[in-house]
Design a binder for these strands. Structure first.
Length: 490
RNA sequence: GCAGCCGUAGCUCAGUUGGUUAGAGCGCUUGAUUGUGGAUCAAGAGGUCCGUGGUUCAAAUCCACGCGGCUGUACCA
């Protein structure tokens, strides 16, 4: 009555906020390795590091201002003590725009930078989609030419190659101007009322092509669509002819001649095609394998954001099992982003890779080289009869030789210590109890070999003897014998 | 955001038409088998039955609302 309930009333329930997660050792190691590798690539391509803070003024982030009804829709925001709204960054590009605007005069133009860090989105978490995740981002500000777009695409490809994913991804490229050309060619006029709304619906429908298929997209372009749950999504209200034209663009593979036919004489369409041609030529010159480049007008991305070339990095083009993961990164040209601050248009383009998402995909692909953690090498057991300072000296000697070692901390029995070593996937254990000490020896147990042998062991005395998995050697030969045992395990 | 389903131990779940002290398996901790990962045996820890209110002599069980999870859908920088 007293114990449980009294404790219950005083303790706090340990719980993780929804949509957030703890990252275990395997993913943490993998994430660090990926970030390090990508940073090196960017550095060698002449991009410099820039780290902006996690918090920004909400209005500097742009789009998602806290409003009366839903102060936390999209972004996490909070009030500073001077009443100004702060918000957690939801990507790395908006803070870059703020940085560029603030430091414009002192920056070299073009300005090339990379950055990585956690970003936050306050929205409904879905499986594999969290409210905090790691992004890697690279951008070029102040270069209006397709050469910059091509270089960023090529860098994205190089990044994927560096992560060991050569031939496991593809770059789907398109151009926002193609979509402008399409809208023009189906008779949507910029100056008509309701254009913005209609444009948005058309673009969203196109974006759903891959997930929902042609029939659903037809409905969405026309009268609207009712889904399984009974929810109704209003359509764009296009006529039959227009719908067919849109579908022609987004259905199946497309090549340049058919693209030209669809775009016709529209100015934006022509410009978009021209830019794509130039980009692809330059990408190849940058060393991108032609096979990973895929012309794909279904790529839409940020609706009010991009102004020119856009692209997405998708996994396993040939492996349909992976298409459900969608894109692991993408980017494009966003010439308007700094305009908000400066009043003048500053050309900019960039891309980001979703590190957290990429890890999830690699895990599902069982890319073990990318996802395995770093295991412990040695656990030094600590028995009642073990000399503490000697155990510490052994630990230190191993560590100085760059062997990952730890001395058991605690007073449990030997059995529990062995279980601990097993749980930690340690490769071997070192024992120096009374028997070893008398003879100035140590016992090395090969845990990997021991596990293999255990399958055939029947009675418990064999366990204790250890057989080939265990031997005693002179104390001075510690390093030599440990190294030998570790080497034998590879 | 909208809709449907679900919520009992760390995990997977049982719990009768509402009825005494809420259970099992696995896992976890400790111990035994001379000082060894497995097996076996023994003991132990671990619960606000999601929360709040209601119906009732009586609620894990029925009702309402909230919260959380899953699925679909919307949004997605």
């Amino acid at each position: 009555m007293d114990g449980g309930s009294a404790r219950g009333s005083k303790t706090v329930k340990a719980r993780l906020p929804k949509g957030l997660r703890d990252i275990g050792e395997c993913e943490a190691y993998a994430q660090n390795r990926m970030l390090r590798a990508l940073s090196e690539v960017c550095t060698s391509w002449g991009f410099s590091a820039l780290e902006t803070p996690i918090l920004e003024y909400a209005d500097a982030l742009g789009k998602f201002l806290p409003d009366e009804e839903r102060p936390n829709a999209g972004v996490f925001s909070l009030r500073d003590d001077d009443e100004q709204w702060l918000a957690l960054r939801y990507d790395l590009t908006a803070p870059l725009a703020r940085y560029v605007a603030e430091n414009y005069d002192s920056l070299p133009k073009p300005f090339r930078r990379y950055q990585h860090g956690p970003v936050f989105r306050n929205e409904k978490p879905d499986p594999g989609r969290f409210r905090q995740f790691m992004q890697f981002d690279a951008d070029i500000v102040g270069a209006p030419v397709p050469l910059a777009d091509a270089e960023l695409c090529a860098l994205a490809a190089k990044c994927m190659d560096t992560l060991g994913l050569k031939e496991k991804y593809s770059l789907h490229i398109s151009n926002r101007k193609l979509l402008d050309g399409l809208l023009e060619s189906i008779g949507l006029n910029k100056n008509e009322s309701g254009f913005a709304e209609k444009r948005l619906r058309v673009l969203r429908s196109i974006d759903k092509m891959e997930r929902l298929g042609a029939r659903a997209v037809t409905d969405l372009l026309g009268m609207g669509r009712k889904d399984k749950s009974g929810d109704y999504t209003p359509g764009a209200g296009l006529d039959q002819k227009a719908i067919e034209k849109v579908l022609a663009l987004v259905e199946g593979h497309i090549d340049f001649p058919s693209l030209e036919a669809i775009m016709g004489e529209t100015a934006s369409g022509k410009e978009g095609i021209e830019q794509l041609h130039e980009m692809i030529d330059l990408m190849k010159a940058f060393g991108v394998n032609e096979d990973v480049i895929e012309l794909d007008p279904t790529v839409v991305r940020g609706l009010d954001y991009y102004t020119g070339p856009i692209f997405e990095i998708k996994m396993g083009a040939s492996d349909s099992r992976l298409t459900r993961f969608g894109s692991v990164g993408g980017g494009g040209r966003y010439d308007d982003l700094v305009t908000r601050f400066k009043g003048i248009e500053i050309p900019a383009a960039g891309f980001s890779i979703g590190i957290s998402r990429l890890y999830t995909v690699l895990e599902a692909m069982k890319e073990s080289s990318a996802i395995e953690g770093e295991t412990l090498d040695v656990v030094i057991l600590l028995l009642d009869s073990t000399d503490r300072t000697e155990a510490v000296r052994i630990t230190r000697e191993l560590r100085e030789a760059n062997i990952r070692a730890e001395v058991y901390l605690g007073s449990s029995g030997m059995r529990a210590q062995m279980r601990y070593a097993d749980r930690r996937s340690a490769k071997l254990a070192i024992i120096q109890g009374e028997q070893e000490r008398k003879r100035n020896e140590i016992t090395i147990r090969n845990l990997v070999l021991g596990k293999e042998l255990s399958a055939s062991i029947k009675d418990s005395s064999q366990w204790k003897e250890g057989g080939e998995a265990q031997r005693s050697v002179a104390r001075e030969r510690l390093l030599e014998e440990v190294s030998k045992t570790l080497a034998s395990q590879k």
